Amino acid sequence: MTYSRILGTGSYLPDTILTNAMLAERVETSDEWIVSRTGIHARHIAADDQKTSDLAYQASVKALESAGIAATDLDMIIVATTTPDMVFPSAACLLQEKLNVPGIPAFDVQAVCAGFMFALATADSYIKSGMAKQVLVVGAEVMSRVLDWDDRRTCVLFGDGAGAMVVGKSDAPGIMHVKLAADGRYQGILNTPAQIAGGKIQGIPYLHMDGPAVFKFAVKALSDIAEKTLAEAGVEQSAVDWLVPHQANLRIIESTAKHLGLSMDKVIVTLPQQGNTSAASIPLAFDHAVRDGKIQRDQTVLLEGIGGGFAWGAVLLRY
């Protein structure tokens, strides 16, 4: 039987760090207010000349090095992002050009903060079907560019960054089970509703979020999909070595872990110094945990994320 397995990981964070104290100088807020409600202390912000594909490239180079393969060995590139460089071509095609690997399929997946789950599931399907052997999967975002810096409810939450995985064909189990979901009826509580028409921006080009509504939905949706993923895979909760959740809000992460009966010692948390990096948050957290020696080979890891749409998903894997 053919499986897909993570061969290598990489990540990248821009050099500029925006702390809560620095934010308090430009908007009515405080370090105590932000930390008590979100768990976030700081976030990284892309330079003016950095675009999503630039961040993706830096993370990809590290992932390829970790996997021990060259970019020319790839069969496909998938980028999960909601903040691409431009309307088109895709960030994946721009990343492909930077990696100098013309010809192979390259495309974006848009499911906001759940995007990496959808991209990883897509790579898994291509590999298991025999249509690809080695796929580069990237989550990359410059969320700072869709924030209203006068809105303290949202501007304190997000940061920029990229995370990448090289996923390859394997005879040993790697990705064990995937479960995805979406419900467009909730589009109004988390969105960026602008569009380009006639050379002008129509609608509001800033991220809008109904925080309490998102929190309530996210806790239930993430807990439910995690339980269903484990049940359908026939894996007990006690067998999970690590939970790598979307890094959105520490209270959501703690609530989900509690619902699953997992100690926070088994949860990878990078939120305090990175903020919510949307589709990049899970691969960023995973790579940092691997490089810190926490996540090790042959351990069982559960990934889960939720984003605007709503779209949400979970991936159970053996690293």
Rank of each mutant, 00 (worst) to 15 (best):
Y3W: 09
I6K: 04
L7M: 07
Y12A: 09
P14S: 13
D15H: 10
L18K: 05
A21M: 07
M22D: 13
E25C: 06
V27D: 08
E28F: 09
D31F: 10
I34D: 13
I34C: 05
S36F: 01
H41D: 14
H41T: 06
H44T: 06
I45A: 10
A46F: 10
A47P: 05
D48V: 13
D48N: 07
T52V: 13
A56Q: 06
K62W: 02
L64C: 12
A70P: 10
A70F: 09
A70H: 12
L74Q: 05
D75Q: 00
V79P: 00
V79T: 02
A92D: 07
L94E: 14
L94D: 09
L95C: 09
Q96L: 05
N100R: 15
V101S: 07
F107L: 04
V109F: 04
V112C: 04
G115M: 00
M117C: 15
T122E: 09
A123R: 08
G139W: 00
A140T: 00
A140C: 01
V142N: 07
M143G: 01
S144L: 02
R153S: 15
L157T: 11
A164F: 02
V167Y: 02
S170D: 06
D171W: 03
P173H: 05
I175N: 01
A182P: 11
D183A: 07
Y186F: 15
I189K: 09
L190F: 13
T192K: 14
I196K: 14
Q202E: 02
H208R: 13
M209S: 15
D210Y: 03
P212C: 10
A213N: 15
F215A: 05
F217W: 11
F217D: 13
A221D: 14
L222T: 13
L222C: 13
D224T: 14
D224W: 01
T229R: 10
A231M: 12
A233F: 08
A233M: 04
S238D: 13
A239I: 07
W242A: 04
L243G: 13
H246P: 11
N249P: 00
K258E: 08
K258A: 15
G261N: 04
G261S: 07
L262W: 12
L262C: 10
S263Y: 07
M264R: 08
P272N: 03
Q274I: 00
Q274K: 03
Q274H: 05
T277G: 01
S281P: 01
A289T: 04
R291E: 12
G293K: 00
I295V: 06
D298E: 14
Q299G: 08
V301S: 05
V301Y: 03
L302Q: 10
G307D: 07
G307V: 07
A314I: 12
